[in-house]
């Protein structure tokens, strides 16, 4: 896909990405890299067929060339599906692919917060969110179970 693209998320979610990636004694990390939570959010948004219309006050999270080949493929597949299966030209337009992904991810994060992270989320006055948890929270397991449960939901396109 040539040169790498910047991937953005809402500024208020940045801390959550960071918190879940940093490994601490009290709160072990849940994701190795930002891209993994980003893609997960994206697939959740897509699975539940929910995406934002636009990305408000966003901040760059990562470079697109950090995605692994499977994530890259999935993001393309989602973009393709979003524009209709027959228009493969979107595959030539990475910015379009990532833009679609950002919108899904934005919604996906919103859903994850609502479904999983909510008890641990703290919101500052300026609306920035942070997450405070410990190992007993078993966040990752909860996430996995949640993801698995979503998979049981029938394909919205079926």
């Amino acid at each position: 896909m040539g040169l790498a693209e910047r991937i953005f998320v809402q500024k208020r979610y940045i801390d959550i990405f960071r918190e879940l990636r940093i490994d601490k004694q009290s709160s072990p990390r849940i994701f190795k890299e930002n891209k993994d939570l980003f893609v997960l959010c994206c697939t959740i948004g897509f699975k539940l067929n929910k995406r934002s219309n636009e990305l408000k006050s966003s901040e760059m999270l990562l470079w697109s060339n950090t995605f692994d080949e499977y994530q890259e493929t999935v993001l393309k597949a989602i973009a393709l599906k979003s524009v209709g299966n027959s228009d493969l030209t979107i595959l030539d337009k990475p910015a379009k692919v990532y833009q679609i992904a950002q919108l899904y991810a934005d919604k996906g994060m919103e859903i994850l917060i609502e479904e999983i992270f909510k008890p641990y989320i703290k919101e500052t006055k300026d609306g920035t969110l942070s997450i405070v948890y410990n190992e007993k929270a078993e966040l990752l397991e909860a996430l996995i179970h949640y993801v698995y449960s979503l998979n049981e939901i029938s394909d919205p396109f079926d």
Binding site: K35, L37, L40, V74, V147, Y148
Partner: peptide, 27 residues
Amino acid sequence: QKSLNQTLVELTPSLSVFLAKDLVEEL
């Protein structure tokens, strides 16, 4: 438990694409 959790963390890239399985199959 800790080591299993570590493995799970290692698996999160895979988890991130898990929900796209149906989509991929469909395509």
